[in-house]
Each structure stands twice: as structure tokens, then as C-alpha cells.
């Protein structure tokens, strides 16, 4: 069974390996490089203003998403771990609902609503939509850390005269900083990888990387799409490192 598992793992990772290999091909076609590798397709990516603008837009939306969702999730996690209230479990279940809701259902509703507002065609609409998907993940990460912190530390700070904000800023936040960092990287990755909401909400003014890759993937597959995909992959690698840290030293 274990040996089968390693074969499965190889199959699972094969699409990534092939994509990375193809992005270095000197051929004009989708081929695994045979005679030597080239960075030509990456050069073409960065020489093309459409792709570069999409990359910049993607990063902008991702940073905005991370800022919004980590701040929102932090406030919620503090309230949820420091206080008990009636209906807390139901509240939390509702908060985590976007993890299982079909994105297509949310996307149609969001499209219909956003088109009636001035947010239509504004990067903020994408960042907010991505935050809806990212907040539950950031919340789970932050809650896990906050619930392990000793509440007496904060109580001691308060006893010594610190206000609630001061106690949070001087005690809780520094202690939870690694989790904040991990949550930020996770939400960046979620935003960079989100497709369905992006396809429904992005307009020509806010083309992001997945949106530019999309038509190419359907109609005009070239190694350039592979290199664009690898660039997206590199951007999300820090999140994977954060996941490794998250699983690593402290948790047993």
C-alpha cells in the first residue's frame, strides 16, 4: 500500500513537473525540452506588456486581499477565542461556509450585485471577493495560534495598566506574528490562484494573470502559457514554505 502511495504521489505531481519542463523548451511547440533548455519563453513573457500588466494586477489584488482578510480574520479570531457567547458555534459554521459553497453560485450572485455598484471594474471588487474565500482559511490559522496563547499574559498586561489595544499590540500580536505571517502568505496564494470569481468579476480594466492565461489554455496553447504558469507557481511557493513551518517544529 505504501509503495502504491508513492506511485500515486508521482502521478499527482507529474502535471507540475511537465509544466515546468515545457516552460524551458526551445521548441515553438509543447514539447519536453530535448536538446538544451532556454529562458526564451520567460523573456517573451516579460517583453509583452499584456502579460506584465496582468502580473502586476494579480500581485496588487493579492496584497490587497491578504491585508483585508488577515485584518478581518484577526478581529474575528480574537473575539472567538477570548469570549464565549450564545450561538458561537453556529456563527463559526456560517463563517466557514465559503470553504464548501460552490464558487460558481457565489460568482453569479456577486456578478449581478457588483454590476449595480461603482465597484464594477475596480480591483477592490476582486480583492473583496477573494477575501470572502480567504477569510475562513486565515481565521482557522489565527484561531489555532490564539487559542494556544496563555490568556494570563494579556490579563497581566491589562492589570499593569495597558489598554485593550496596547495589550493586543504589545503582547498578543508579537506572539501571534508567525501565524499572521503564515495567514498572509496563505491568503496571497488563495488570491493568486482563484479563478472562478475572477472570471466572473474581472473586466478588461483589471485583467489578472489567470484571466490572461484562461483563453490561451482553451484555444492557443504555447510554451509561453507554461512559463506564465510557472511564474504563478513561483509566486505561491512562499505560502508552501509557510505551510511547512506551520506543520513543523511546534506542532509535536
Amino acid at each position: 500500500m505504501i509503495r502504491v502511495a508513492y506511485i500515486l504521489l508521482a502521478v499527482l505531481l507529474s502535471p507540475l513537473v511537465v509544466t515546468i519542463a515545457v516552460s524551458f523548451t526551445p521548441s515553438a511547440f509543447l514539447e519536453i525540452p530535448k536538446n538544451g533548455v532556454t529562458l526564451g519563453w520567460y523573456r517573451e513573457f516579460f517583453a509583452n506588456p499584456i502579460w506584465v500588466r496582468a502580473l502586476v494586477n494579480s500581485l496588487g489584488v493579492a496584497v490587497l486581499t491578504a491585508a483585508i482578510s488577515v485584518a478581518v480574520a484577526m478581529a474575528t479570531a480574537v473575539a472567538m477565542t477570548r469570549h464565549r457567547f450564545r450561538g458561537q458555534d453556529a456563527w463559526e459554521a456560517a463563517l466557514l461556509l465559503p470553504l464548501v459553497l460552490p464558487a460558481i453560485a457565489i460568482a453569479v450572485g456577486m456578478l449581478a450585485i457588483v454590476r449595480l455598484t461603482p465597484l464594477w471594474g475596480h480591483p477592490l471588487s476582486l480583492a473583496l471577493a477573494h477575501s470572502v474565500a480567504a477569510v475562513p482559511v486565515a481565521y482557522l490559522v489565527l484561531r489555532a495560534t490564539l487559542s494556544r496563547l496563555d490568556p494570563n499574559l494579556e490579563a497581566a498586561a491589562r492589570g499593569l495598566g495597558a489598554g485593550p489595544w496596547q495589550a493586543f499590540g504589545l503582547i498578543t500580536l508579537p506572539l501571534a506574528m508567525p501565524a499572521v505571517f503564515a495567514a498572509a502568505l496563505f491568503t496571497l496564494a488563495i488570491s493568486l490562484n482563484e479563478i472562478t470569481l475572477t472570471l466572473f468579476l474581472a473586466t478588461r480594466d483589471i485583467e489578472t494573470l489567470p484571466r490572461v492565461i484562461w483563453p490561451n489554455l482553451r484555444f492557443a496553447l504555447t510554451p509561453l502559457v507554461a512559463s506564465a504558469s510557472v511564474i504563478l507557481l513561483i509566486l505561491t511557493l512562499p505560502a508552501l514554505a509557510a505551510a511547512g513551518w506551520w506543520l513543523g517544529p511546534r506542532r509535536r
Binding site: 511537465v18 509544466t19 493568486l192 479563478i195 489567470p210 507554461a226 504558469s229 510557472v230 511557493l237 505551510a243
Partner: peptide, 12 residues
């Protein structure tokens, strides 16, 4: 694979 864009994956 879940930390990579689904489009990378579809491509492969």
C-alpha cells in the same frame, strides 16, 4: 498542487 494555480495543473 493546491498551492499552485489550477491552470498550471490543467496545463500539465
Amino acid at each position: 498542487p493546491k498551492f499552485t494555480n489550477i491552470l498550471v495543473f490543467v496545463f500539465g
